[in-house]
Design a protein around this nucleic acid. Structure first.
Lengths: 106, 106
DNA sequence: ATTTCATATGAAATATAATTCATTTGAAGT
DNA sequence: ACTTCAAATGAATTATATTTCATATGAAAT
């Protein structure tokens, strides 16, 4: 394993370990959206979406393109797609009950 | 994207977004170890290592094999290798300065 | 059955992160 | 210049997660 990767991993996974940010990425994987469109789609407040977009942008999990007053965000399909796929593969093989292994009772 | 994946992603990434657990995985990727060996290798207390191994085990990021008094833990090479590799690839392409984009000042 | 070694657990204390609400910035139109 | 719309920011509150320390469990040896 490459030196220093653990720190980068921490920053990255930390970034991804948040329901709002994951839901944001999920939406943006479908199509690019403005902040307010995202807020609508997620049923969240604009400021919250903004706050959560910031770290995603910083790590280049999303990209931004300004159009007049609007900021159009899009997902980094390559990275996000790869990571989500890896989780899906793992879940199918190691959590065959569909997440039963993730419940509190264990 | 598969339905319900966001929740699983959350649990998984949450699990991985911890320096102790990442360092643990890094060590276990090298070779299987007992809890005390891990604690030594990491310079952490045994109870802390135990606490952190629990969620890793629950998500099958690590496996356990009991040998007498000892618990030998090993990494899920497939999953952990894939995820770390994905981060490495992303970092090389999108964080060419080696994490400068991850600093606070931005 | 008692002692020792290895690990796991519980609960309190501490540290971190997320959310909300009020406010600010900035771009574009009037 | 003023108003409006869109997004970003700051700071306080609230919620979560981590760490520590004391203790419990469990296996094996004496």
């Amino acid at each position: 394993m490459k030196k220093g990767l653990t720190e980068i991993c921490y920053k990255f996974f930390n970034n991804l370990s948040n329901p709002t940010r994951l839901a944001t990425l999920e939406k943006l994987m479908e199509k690019p959206m403005s902040v307010n469109e995202l807020a609508d789609a997620l049923g969240q407040e604009q400021s919250m979406v903004s706050h959560n977009l910031k770290p995603l942008l910083q790590c280049n999990f999303v990209f931004i393109e300004k159009q007049g007053k609007k900021s159009i965000y899009s997902a980094n399909q390559e990275t996000v797609g790869t990571l989500f796929k890896a989780v899906e593969v793992h879940a199918e093989k190691y959590c065959p009950t569909g997440g039963k292994c993730l419940k509190e009772e264990n």
